[in-house]
């Protein structure tokens, strides 16, 4: 009986520690997102060439959104196959939608 309680306690501690570690990881993610945002704003105010800055801005945005989805919204956890399908499906349709509208106007 005593052993049982012990093992369930260490099991509990293990999960608590796991959650703590994940929280630490999420704070690091947050710091990276802040840095990315500062780089993005900094590049625009520094007056660099537009053709050079715009692709980097879009790349920074995509990486930041990936952080948000995979770490803050836990898509990196198990059991997120259908959510991934929905988000990637949504992103693919989103890309086509934006491409279509932009091409229609710029043609």
């Amino acid at each position: 009986m005593a052993e049982n309680t012990n093992s369930s306690n260490s099991h509990l501690d293990y999960h608590k520690q796991k959650k703590k570690d994940e929280m630490k990881q999420q704070v690091i993610t947050f710091a990276l997102m802040i840095i990315f945002t500062i780089i993005a704003f900094g590049m625009v105010t520094s007056g660099l060439d537009k053709l050079f800055v715009v692709p980097i801005l879009l790349l920074l945005a995509v990486v930041q959104v990936g952080f948000q989805l995979y770490y803050f919204m836990h898509m990196s956890h198990k059991g997120h196959e259908l959510p991934s399908l929905m988000m990637y499906g949504g992103a693919a349709v989103a890309f086509l939608t934006v491409l279509t509208m932009v091409v229609l106007v710029w043609w």
Binding site: M87, G90, V93, A94, M101
Partner: peptide, 17 residues
Amino acid sequence: LGGETVLFASLFGTYLA
């Protein structure tokens, strides 16, 4: 949320156009 992504994409596309 997958649907919302598409919805906002149409607004972004409209804005860019």
